[in-house]
């Protein structure tokens, strides 16, 4: 069992004004207003939040700033923001809006030295490197950008080590293969990265039920788990009723009231109680 306290992090993918969720980072469905979900998670004991502007890299825009500002006023836990941050000026803008950390992928792949520069300027602990891993037919894991669509040719483990050496404070590791499926985290991938770097690794992508969290912590050696669907679908009903969500994006799912069958929704209290029962240390409110 890990000695450290494990963090449970809610990941909110944001498109325009809305919280969305896809499968394999694609096929986005609108779920509601991110601030509402964030506030609920904060009040029920989430340890951190990640806001990911998932279309920013593709369209070169960053619509997150207003959402960050509104969130930071009400939520007094760490907030990481990523998506489309290109340079030190972008990082500064996001931090000045109330984010505590930034997550970089494309910018760091294009110019790894940005990790060093950003760590020196804003502190290592502020810089989270996001790695989107896709398993290849030959068994290798390669790093991708732009929600798994952009090939980099980088080996995930080499890239993770290099990012840590350059001064990254944490690694947000996403298995694109598992993402949104509810079939569980990629344990091998997580374990190998966690054992390759001295810095904390956040496992992301695939959580569908409580057992998956336990696996990735005990076997995968993750220092933190990031969840989306399990939490979002748990809060879904409350937010759907009377929610004035914008019509931008695919809201058909929201209107239909359907469920996604592979995911067993859970609230934070249930998750934390489960982890403690498994002898996994974590913060409880």
């Amino acid at each position: 069992m890990p000695e450290q306290n494990i963090r449970v992090i809610a990941r909110l993918d944001i498109k325009g004004p809305n919280l969305v969720k896809g499968i394999h980072l694609e096929g986005l469905r609108v779920l509601g207003k991110p601030e509402q979900f964030a506030r609920y998670y904060y009040e029920t004991g989430v340890d951190e939040l990640i806001y990911m502007d998932i279309v920013a890299t593709l369209y070169g825009r960053n619509s997150l700033l207003e959402i960050i500002k509104r969130t930071a006023k009400e939520i007094f836990i760490p907030l990481t923001v990523g998506g489309g941050l290109r340079n030190l000026a972008d990082i500064k803008t996001v931090l000045r809006s109330g984010a505590d950390k930034v997550s970089l992928n494309t910018a760091a792949v294009k110019n790894p030295n940005i990790i060093k520069e950003a760590a020196r300027k804003f502190g290592s602990s502020t810089i989270v490197i996001s790695i989107e891993a896709i398993k290849q037919d030959d068994g290798r894991y390669l790093a991708f950008v732009e929600n798994g669509r952009g090939h980099t040719g980088l080996d995930v483990f080499e890239w993770a080590k290099k990012a840590a050496e350059l001064g990254a404070g944490e690694i947000l590791l996403t298995s694109v293969d598992q993402e949104g499926t509810g079939l569980g985290y990629d344990i091998d991938l997580t374990k190998k990265v966690a054992e390759s770097v001295p810095i904390p690794v956040i496992a992301n992508g695939g959580a569908g039920k409580l057992e998956h969290l336990k696996e990735v912590i005990t076997e995968g050696k993750a220092n933190a788990v990031s969840l989306a669907s399990m939490l979002h679908y748990g809060f879904f009903d409350k937010s759907r009723i009377g929610n004035d969500f914008s019509l931008e994006g695919n809201t058909e799912f929201l209107k239909s009231g359907q469920r996604f069958s592979k995911i067993e929704p859970a609230d934070l209290m249930t998750i934390k109680n489960f982890l403690v029962k498994q002898n996994i240390k974590c913060r409880k409110l």
């Binding site: 963090r7 340890d47 602990s125 054992e195 770097v197 001295p198 810095i199 220092n223």
Partner: peptide
């Protein structure tokens, strides 16, 4: 103190204590 990565405490300490 530097720890072994496998099972040791990660540095930086990031999280709740």
């Amino acid at each position: 103190p530097l720890q072994d990565f496998e099972g040791g405490s990660k540095v930086p300490q990031v999280g709740w204590n």
